[in-house]
Amino acid sequence: MATSLSFLNPHAADKIPVWLDCDVGHDDAMALILAAYHPSISLLGVSTVAGNSSLKNTTANTISVMQAAGIKGIGVYKGASRPLVKPAAYAGDIHGASGLAGTALLPEPDFATYLSEDTNAVNAMYRAIISSQVPVCVVAVGPLTNIALLISMYPQIIPKIRTLSIMGGAVALGNVTAAAEFNIHFDPEAAHIVLNSGIAHISIVPLDVTHTVLTTKNVIRRIAESVPVPRFAQLITDLLLYFSSTYGGVFGMGDGAPLHDPVAVAYLFMRNAFVERYVRVDVDCSAGHGQGRTYCDMFGRTGKPPNCWVATSVDVEQFWNTMLEALVAASKESPLKNNG
């Protein structure tokens, strides 16, 4: 059932403390905006990781998006520049050489204001989580390298993680190979460590779900018509149209690109919009054709205890209503409203 365009009253309950770990490309940019502007979330910090592009690019992209969206007072921390074991293989065919191609409206990144050079992502996450009065939710929308390093270096942090929401993996699809989803395939060893860490609540929003959340022509039209700052609306539609064009070229998807990453953010505050199952998930770390595949034991055939909540569907209209509201809120804070 669709909801109205209004958020829940942010004063109805305490805000959810959230740390966002990302490799900002087109869909990560929308996840960052949703995490920063949903009133039920208190965004503690943002860490970057190599994935969609190099760490240099994903960090620059993160800061540029935060500037364009008027996100202030939140530190950005650089994390892992490569996977734990295998060589890096970026997604330039989807996100362009920079990792965030398709628009001339992004500002040059203001590293001096946003980037915290005094510590790395893993230490910053540890400090934020261990010092929080309540357990923290972590959203990982890139490869899981930073998260694997965090729990390996600081295992005492595990009970302080309330939920780890992951965009990654698949039950039946692959988008970087016939069997594997990009984030898990980029660093399967990290994913193996994370899924076997003992974190009490791990959720996976897989390709099977995100491929239902498409940037259709109707979605693009709604953004253009509803976001009140024309230049900010143009920035968002530029990014989503580029994303849709590369998905069309690479995968033959003519109905728009799947907006993967913000769906994992939405899981934190609209879990009732998801159908999910608690199952065993293992990662193929071999060097063969199955590398990076997530084996989701939907029927309990392995006899292993479950370790993940795997989403199987989401209320797409409810998601888009929420995403659109975040874009409207961001536009009102965006410096682009003062330009032209």
Results as ranks from 00 to 15, higher is better:
H95G: 05
L259V: 15
L268K: 01
H211S: 11
C22V: 09
L164Q: 06
P39R: 10
F269W: 04
A91N: 08
T48Y: 01
V213K: 10
I151S: 00
P107H: 08
A97Y: 07
V316P: 01
T59W: 04
S116K: 12
L240Y: 07
A91H: 01
L106K: 12
C22L: 12
V219I: 15
P10L: 03
G70R: 13
P258K: 15
A200G: 03
V328R: 15
L32M: 10
V176M: 03
Q156D: 14
I16P: 00
T119S: 06
G70C: 12
T145W: 02
G198H: 13
N61Y: 09
K337D: 10
T216C: 09
E325M: 05
A35V: 06
A89D: 12
L164W: 05
T177Q: 10
Y90S: 03
E317P: 07
G300W: 08
V209L: 04
V49G: 01
K56E: 09
L207D: 05
P228T: 05
N272L: 02
L324V: 02
G288W: 07
L144C: 08
N272E: 15
D315E: 10
P188G: 04
L34I: 11
R277Y: 00
M30Y: 09
D23A: 15
V310W: 10
G25M: 13
V134K: 15
I199F: 00
T119W: 00
L241I: 09
S244W: 14
Q133L: 07
F232R: 05
P107S: 08
N52K: 12
G25T: 13
S53K: 03
S98Y: 04
